[in-house]
Write a protein that binds this DNA or RNA. Structure first.
Lengths: 248, 248
DNA sequence: CGTTTGATTGACACGAGTCAACACCAGTGG
DNA sequence: CCACTGGTGTTGACTCGTGTCAATCAAACG
């Protein structure tokens, strides 16, 4: 926001030194963008991906379907988040990506991305940063879902999503919109919707979370982060933000 | 093996077109290597990583520790596997890596890696491939641990590890060494050691797995893959291998 | 208004965790 | 040569967190 008209540059400017020229490349990628409706797909599992995607507006989620019919959501995407679905590097998308809300997405032809990366080391760094941050996030979810109970897991996810929303200007103080159904939260946390509901109510009863519809408020982030065992390092966030005013 | 004296080039030659020159770069990285003993660390969580690592020999594992004391193993590394711990891109390692067996590891200064990547697009592609394949693997584990029961999970992990071992010449037909304790398998699968033991015996009772010590045999890979819902696409393996002779 | 989608709650079941004991084996040192 | 140790695997009995099934409710919507 502010100085930047594209959320990807905004995010990256906090963590990497973007040259003038690199930023122009990113601006080019993020110009325009396609409006997408709720539930529309950016990528389907099995597709040969030919675009590098940047979410400009709205939320999306990445998911994997299992032969048995289950679904695991493997990540949420907010404005400024990218997916490098391997384009020229790997042959097929191993998971799908779809919108959680209406929004706007930039589809950058892999050819352009490759050319820019070959021409400018700064761009190559950006791509690598995105891929590595992505992997880091997936590993953190692995640990979260694997070794925490329902309460801790949910608290952890809420901390993460509030922080990420805040980072791109989508939080109003400790309040933010989490446009996912409890079903979707369940598939992200590897729980059942019923248990997500109970756990959410539990946190609410303890004054750690408040919500009406999809609008969530985290009245005591310090205590919630304590419950979650949350350490924001894995998000690799850059510069200062509202979080510094709120965080323990 | 065979034409290649370094396992990284061997692995990559199946999936990427390596130029003559690129291969020489990889040979340079993998020349030498440091011998490491059981339990020795390649990287500790929180370190500022200054090397790109390639496992030349032996098995390693990547793990995260939780504030509550739990451990989640987030991946196994076999010869030819790399870790790009973000070097110049991200500030700190978000997880540790340690040997499961004695072995040999090449530590390549990030500076060299950066230079090679800037100079040669082929090298940049290699790095990106490694990062993306890594993320893909983590997401598959997320789905596996999140949405399958103990039996399916364990079956899936065994399929993965046999296939990866076979790919680098470490399997003898359907038999391979899995140098992890049941404790370690439990931390990889987000189970307890006791339950891993019971599940393993269950699979053994059904003739799907056989083991004595750390030597595992998978007598009926087709049936085991069926139990697991295993689809090897996520490993992004390249050329043909023994698997083609055995797989359903 | 019916219909649909998502949230909520209760009763009950079950898979996996916990606790505890024992077996086995490789060292190691007396 | 044997006693002792620590690490790993194995098994049983019991507990408990989460899943399953089912009913109800509220809001959104054509």
């Amino acid at each position: 926001m502010g100085a930047f008209d594209n959320p990807l540059a905004a995010k990256l400017s906090g963590v990497l030194d973007l040259g003038e020229e690199d930023r122009r490349v990113l601006d080019g990628w993020c110009a325009g963008g396609v409006p997408l409706g709720h539930d529309q797909h950016l990528v389907r599992e099995g597709d040969k991906p030919v675009h590098f995607c940047v979410v400009l507006d709205g939320w999306a989620h990445r998911y994997k379907l299992l032969p048995s019919g289950g679904r695991q959501i493997v990540g949420f995407m907010l404005p400024g988040d990218t997916c490098d679905l391997y384009g020229s590097v790997l042959p097929r998308a191993d998971h799908g990506i779809a919108m959680l809300t209406p929004g706007r997405v930039a589809f950058v032809p892999q050819r352009l991305v490759e050319e820019a990366a070959a021409r400018r080391p700064g761009v190559e760094r950006i791509l690598r940063w995105c891929a590595l941050a992505d992997a880091s996030l997936a590993r953190t979810w692995l640990a979260n879902n694997g070794r925490r109970n329902a309460r801790e897991r949910l608290a952890h996810l809420l901390c993460e999503l509030w922080l990420r929303a805040d980072q791109v200007g989508l939080a109003r103080g400790r309040t933010f919109d989490l446009p996912a159904t409890q079903d979707e939260l369940a598939d992200a946390l590897a729980l059942t919707p019923v248990h997500v509901n109970r756990t959410l109510r539990g946190l609410q009863g303890d004054g750690l979370v408040d919500y009406q519809g999809r609008e969530f408020t985290l009245p005591d982030l310090g205590r919630l982060a304590g419950v979650a065992g949350f350490d924001p390092a894995y998000l690799h966030l850059g510069g200062p933000s509202a979080r510094d005013a709120v965080w323990p």
